[in-house]
């Protein structure tokens, strides 16, 4: 197995007096697809947010390529989100004012790329996810499955090392969900991106290489004896 890309150790986080994470551990290797499973409210989303540097954990350390996220500035973390990470959420991560292609081009533009170049790249990604025909439409004008594929394209457009996917099929019917998962996993494998996939659905988790279960804020790792 290749080296560890991203790891969280002894992560704890409480919102007010409600504990969400309590000494959770997770490490992700390069190109690996890890499913984070668990019942709702178990803290799996919080774990993802901590790993992605969106939420700073109360305890524990998150290391990405040997750098500690919590010691980085907001600017540096934002740059990390822009360049090294990609995000696919259940819904609502697309900016409703922008067309699909502009949404996909957004991380590139925030990184300072010129509009034309950014949108050309964005179009390639839309084509790769088989949604090039809706490039000019707004998120409100496309179906849920198409919207998620646009979101996947946006997550991949900067060539990230990790994609964080939080219930990416949660708002979709089974068939659209299958398609999105297939494309997400397929393109991630092709580009060598690791995926942290939070889901409560076993069928979605089955697309992963490995699963981690979160229960009551703790991770449970099980190694099957072959």
């Amino acid at each position: 197995m290749s080296e560890v890309l991203l790891s969280g150790t002894n992560l704890g986080k409480a919102f007010g007096s409600t504990p969400a994470l309590d000494s959770a551990d997770l490490s992700v290797r390069r190109g690996e697809i890890v499913a984070v499973m668990g019942p709702s409210g178990s803290g799996k989303s919080t774990l993802l947010h901590c790993l992605a540097g969106i939420v700073t954990p109360d305890t524990g350390v998150v290391l990405f390529e040997g750098r500690e996220l919590s010691s980085m500035s907001d600017k540096a973390r934002s740059a990390l989100r822009r360049g090294e990470f990609g995000f696919v959420f259940q819904f609502g991560q697309l900016v409703p004012e922008l067309s699909c292609v502009e949404n996909v081009a957004l991380p590139l533009r925030l990184g300072g790329a010129k509009r034309k170049a950014a949108e050309a790249t964005a179009r390639e990604w839309l084509a790769r996810l088989q949604v090039e025909d809706i490039a000019a439409k707004r998120p409100s004008e496309v179906s849920g499955g198409q919207g998620q594929r646009v979101a996947v394209a946006r997550a991949l457009v900067t060539g990230p090392k990790v994609i964080f996917a939080d219930e990416p099929t949660g708002a979709l019917d089974s068939l659209s969900g299958e398609q999105v998962m297939r494309l997400l996993v397929g393109t991630a494998k092709e580009t060598g991106a690791a995926v942290v996939l939070v889901t409560h659905e076993a069928r979605v988790a089955a697309y992963s290489d490995r699963e981690v279960v979160v229960r009551d804020g703790r991770t449970r790792h099980v190694e099957l004896v072959p």
């Binding site: 297939r182 076993a202 069928r203 988790a205 089955a206 697309y207 699963e211 449970r220 099980v222 099957l224």
Partner: peptide
Amino acid sequence: AEVVLDTQRAAHLKAMRELTARKR
């Protein structure tokens, strides 16, 4: 007892993973 369940889940998921791969 959780270990029993976890092991079983892992086995189930393993089977599901294989099915998913075959499906793909």
